[in-house]
């Protein structure tokens, strides 16, 4: 499973419905509230056994994927 596919799974789970995302999708469009965002970060960190840092800013899906891949590579 690619990071994009995994992320789609996590974001869909949080939204309560299947959503389509591309690397260009922004988190503004996705309209998650602050508790959703915390939940998403926790789910990613647990799934990949990584830490995304304390001041993570969620802008686009592509940037988040890059951060996940980087953290996984540095494990």
């Amino acid at each position: 499973m690619t990071t994009l596919e995994k992320l789609k799974e996590i974001l869909s789970d949080c939204k309560g419905e299947d959503i389509d995302i591309t690397p260009e999708t922004t988190f503004d469009e996705l309209d998650f509230d602050s508790l959703d965002k915390v939940d998403i970060v926790m789910q990613i960190e647990e799934a990949y056994d990584i830490s995304l840092g304390e001041n993570l800013q969620l802008s686009t899906v592509g940037e988040l994927i890059a951060k996940i891949d980087e953290a996984v590579a540095n494990k």
Binding site: L35, V38, D39, M42, E54
Partner: peptide, 13 residues
């Protein structure tokens, strides 16, 4: 905290 995810995150911190 208002959710379990935030509770877990701050516990870890």
């Amino acid at each position: 905290v208002a959710s379990t995810a935030l509770a877990k995150m701050v516990e870890r911190a």
